[in-house]
Computed example of a mutant assay.
Amino acid sequence: MKRITRNLTLAAAMIAVIFAMSGCMVGKFMCNYALLPEEHGNDIEGDRVKVEERYPGIIAWYDALRSDGTYRDGTLEGEGGCKLYYEYVTASDPANAQGTAVVVHGYTDNHICFLNLVRMYRDSLNYNVLVPDLHHHGYSEGDAVQMGWLDRLDAIRFIEKAHEIFGDDFLVMHGVSMGGATTMMTSGEDLPEYVRAFVEDCGYSSVWNQYKYNLKQMFHLPSWPVLNSASNVCRRRYGWDFKQASSMDQLAKCERPMLFIHGDNDDFVPTSHVYMNYDAKVKGYKEIWLAPGSAHAMAYKDHPAEYTAHVRSFLAKVRELGL
């Protein structure tokens, strides 16, 4: 009986070791899959085509402003010494500009992918606009995607650069998807007084929660031990882990106004995330708008007039009421 017990214990230990080793290998694969995607916003020409298909005429609008020098670019030094790229454009009526918007793209996107929001802020709302390429995206350097967490530190640099260029005392940060998470994560930091408001569109509640959902949805895998292993790999390589990268934790520290936007038919970052994020912000003014029928990052495409109206109304309240 003792021999059977000993053999069963040994077998269980061996299974546990094999399971842990396999989990570690899968964890490394997942970390690479998530943070080192083959396509990471570096296909600028391909994205120009996609954006033009979605918003006909917008590339001609962009190219014309680039040609006459209204739309410019620059670089700055980001976290870890990486060279980060950005573009910026003055308001349609510069003498009466309402402020500055920093528009932040999503996962595997770049400065081209949300020209619709740049045009919204410039032409419809009369804001100056700066739009960056985040770490490891577009023309920016960087060894891996940072999922908004280390990007929040770069976002502060982009905010400061926008203020240096335009000098406005009213700045709004607006991000979509991973850019939405970057916006929320930035909102919990110690920021200059001229940062007055945030708009987040379909951002996730935390990297852990998002990857847990993706593991089940895409690979039919449990979070343990795969996600734990991948998070450990990320911490060793890049200095942060998936639970640490939390929009909700940062929102709990945010006292400045925020507009939350999410499609009510989003099955990539589930709509449940926006409620978690909204509830996590316990200080300061907040609004929420659920875009009817919209899938992930499609709220503006589906409802451009309503989207613009919600952003305009929110910013007007912040400005007029001194929120």
Rank of each mutant, 00 (worst) to 15 (best):
Y139A: 09
R3N: 05
L35E: 01
E53V: 03
Y204G: 00
Y278I: 08
Q146L: 10
G23P: 02
M178V: 01
V102H: 02
R319N: 11
K212P: 00
E45G: 12
L84S: 00
A34C: 10
G167L: 04
D47M: 13
I15L: 15
I4T: 14
E189R: 12
N96C: 10
K2H: 10
M258V: 08
V195L: 13
N7S: 04
E45D: 14
H40G: 00
R312D: 14
S294Y: 04
R66N: 11
Y86M: 03
L191W: 01
A20G: 09
G322E: 04
Y275E: 13
V282M: 12
R66Y: 10
L323T: 03
D47E: 14
D168M: 02
M276S: 10
K243R: 11
E320R: 06
Y55H: 11
G57R: 05
M258H: 03
R152I: 07
S124N: 11
H40D: 02
A20W: 09
A309P: 00
M30A: 12
T5P: 00
A197F: 04
R236K: 15
H174Q: 05
L215C: 09
A309M: 07
G106Y: 06
L130M: 10
N110D: 15
D267Y: 06
A91N: 01
R119G: 00
P222T: 07
N32Q: 12
S177A: 06
I44G: 00
W149A: 02
V282Y: 08
M218P: 00
C202P: 00
G57L: 10
V102G: 06
C24L: 09
Y71L: 14
H303T: 06
Q210K: 10
T186R: 06
K253T: 04
N110H: 13
R119P: 02
A245Y: 08
L10D: 01
T70K: 12
V145T: 10
L134F: 07
Q217P: 01
S187G: 13
Y211P: 02
T183A: 11
N110F: 07
D241E: 12
R157L: 11
G167H: 06
R66A: 12
Y194C: 03
Y238W: 13
L259A: 03
H303N: 11
C113G: 06
E306M: 08
A60D: 15
D133V: 04
V226C: 07
Y107L: 09
S177L: 09
D279S: 12
T308K: 14
D266F: 04
I261P: 01
G148R: 00
A155P: 00
A16S: 13
Q146R: 14
L315K: 04
